[in-house]
Design a protein around this nucleic acid. Structure first.
Lengths: 190, 190
DNA sequence: TATCTTTGACCAATCGTTCAGTCAAAAAAA
DNA sequence: TTTTTTTGACTGAACGATTGGTCAAAGATA
């Protein structure tokens, strides 16, 4: 029989994994991934350097876990239903989810924007991003088609670009960026 | 007397400086700043490592020069006049300049977005960015005030955010992103 | 020769990663 | 209760690779 139950060990591992990932996200986002050493993460998390390698195979593997976790979190905010049809109310919920996600996960957005253009990093993540993105496009195109928008696809691509632009500007300057007022302008557009 | 005239040496230095900066921009943008070694830059530029240090004091100094040069280039595209007043025609020129700048300097935008959130890098650049940004805000607020827009400041912040969002999406996917059609939508907004 | 550009071996520092070994805690045995 | 055994989380010195940066010497040209 083990000295601790499996459940106890699992909880320890869960908490430490979470601690390491949260610390890593904070440092990656604000100092850059390549500029953040494992030593620095260990120091901030008050653990040893070796322990990180007990939980993650490599620095790349840690990065992947951090980004995937952030993406999961983002998807929960969106709450997009799987039906094909989409009502205006649901689109507004989607917009609010997007803006709320930006507010609550600024570090994740910083990390995302700082790495998304590096082919090496992008390939690390597989094509989950692309699939989710295409799914979003299809839904929004359908919505704007129903609204008899002149060019539903173009409007869709603009709207998705706006989310990222608003995200970047909010992150750069959270105090003075009028996020709530801009929400109203976006809703007027749809 | 030197073996070459001052002018000859100056031209050599100008050309080499340009070569190093262009090579560095390309590698910084696509592989990341910290992930690009001086040796790699030298190899791609077909010069020695030591020569880079003949032209730039440090890697940070090279980065600063690259970013500043990109910003100068960006400002030339904008062609914003110094008068207080701003006509619709000039704003459209400004939009077109912005979009054209994105098209022609994708590497610079990649580098910019990948570093802008790092406090260490941001402080390297001084507050030129902030000043230019505030100047743009003031001009656009004035324009939208003249158009009797409901909330000129909010509209301005949204428009500037849109430029960055469009830039990111175009860079991520230049082939399928409908930049020209989106230009029309933006112009309809102003 | 005189002068500036150019080279690449070299350095100390830091990096990601490894691994032999320590430790507290709890079940099992006494 | 007390002692022994067993477990896996945890540590940190050490390693090879790589980094930004230096510099004495060579190359080139008038």
């Amino acid at each position: 029989m083990p000295p601790k139950t499996e459940e106890q060990f699992a909880e320890i591992r869960n908490e430490k994994t979470k601690l390491i990932m949260e610390t890593a996200l904070q440092l990656f986002a604000n100092n850059g991934f390549d500029n953040t050493s494992i030593s620095a993460i260990a120091k901030h998390a008050a653990i040893s350097k070796g322990l990180m390698y007990n939980y993650f195979d490599s620095k790349d593997s840690l990065l992947k876990a951090v980004i995937m976790s952030g993406m999961d979190n983002f998807m929960h905010f969106l709450q997009v239903e799987d039906e094909n049809n989409i009502e205006r109310e649901e689109l507004i919920r989607f917009i609010d989810g997007n803006l709320e996600s930006i507010k609550q996960n600024t570090d994740y957005y910083k990390l995302y924007f700082s790495l998304v253009f590096q082919p090496k990093v992008f390939s690390l993540l597989g094509n989950d991003f692309i699939l989710i993105f295409e799914q979003l496009i299809n839904k929004l195109v359908l919505y704007f088609s129903q609204k008899e928008e002149k060019n539903p696809y173009v409007k869709t691509r603009l709207l998705l670009a706006i989310f990222d632009g608003v995200g970047i500007h909010y992150i750069s300057d959270p105090e003075s960026f009028p996020l709530n007022d801009i929400r109203e302008l976006i809703i007027e557009m749809i």
